[in-house]
Structures are given as structure tokens and as C-alpha cells.
């Protein structure tokens, strides 16, 4: 029997790695991948809590997160494609249309 704390520690490490990845990577696609890592870290935490609380609600939430992530990926990737078509680049530094 592994204590839930172990899983949570793994979850935290994954989450922080996702953040670091988001800031280190230079292109939209890998940044997006990092965000997915963070989502997974959260999912792991949810499952852990569900397990230790002995309820299925946590799993249901993870199920929803996965569906939303799928939708988000579809839209997000479509946007990335559009950006690429317009700027011929997916480097985040090149995209600063919102500069004040």
C-alpha cells in the first residue's frame, strides 16, 4: 500500500516541470504540450484524492478534464495553425500584436 502523499509529490513535481517547460520552450506547440503536462499533474492529484476518499467523483472530474482537454487541443492547435499561416512562425517572441 503506497501512501497517497507519494502520488501527490509526483503530481507536484509534474506540475512544476510543466511550468518550467512552459517558460523554457520557445515555440507555441511545446508550450502547449507543457500545459498538457500540468493538466495531467492535476488529474493525478484528483485520482489520488478520489482513491483516498473512497469516492468516484474525482474520477468523473478527471474524465471531464480529459474531454475538455481534447476540445481545447483541437481549438488551440487550430489557432496555432492560423498563427503560423499569418506570421510564418510559431515563436512566441514573434507574436506580440497586443503590445501596448
Amino acid at each position: 500500500m503506497i501512501p497517497p502523499t507519494y502520488y501527490l509529490v509526483v503530481s507536484i513535481i509534474l506540475f512544476v516541470l510543466g511550468i518550467i517547460g512552459f517558460f523554457i520552450k520557445k515555440d507555441l506547440i511545446t508550450q502547449f504540450l507543457s500545459v498538457e503536462v500540468m493538466l495531467n499533474a492535476a488529474n493525478l492529484a484528483f485520482i489520488t484524492f478520489a482513491h483516498s476518499a473512497g469516492s468516484l467523483d474525482g474520477q468523473i472530474i478527471v474524465f471531464f478534464v480529459i474531454t475538455v482537454a481534447a476540445a481545447e487541443a483541437a481549438i488551440g492547435l487550430a489557432i496555432i495553425l492560423l498563427v503560423y499561416r499569418k506570421h510564418k512562425s510559431i515563436k512566441t517572441e514573434d507574436i506580440h500584436l497586443m503590445k501596448g
Binding site: P3, S52, A53, G54
Partner: peptide
């Protein structure tokens, strides 16, 4: 919560 209430 260190102890897990597994089973379900």
C-alpha cells in the same frame, strides 16, 4: 489522510 481508504 496518510492512510488510504481503498476498496472501491
Amino acid at each position: 489522510m496518510a492512510t488510504s481508504v481503498s476498496g472501491q
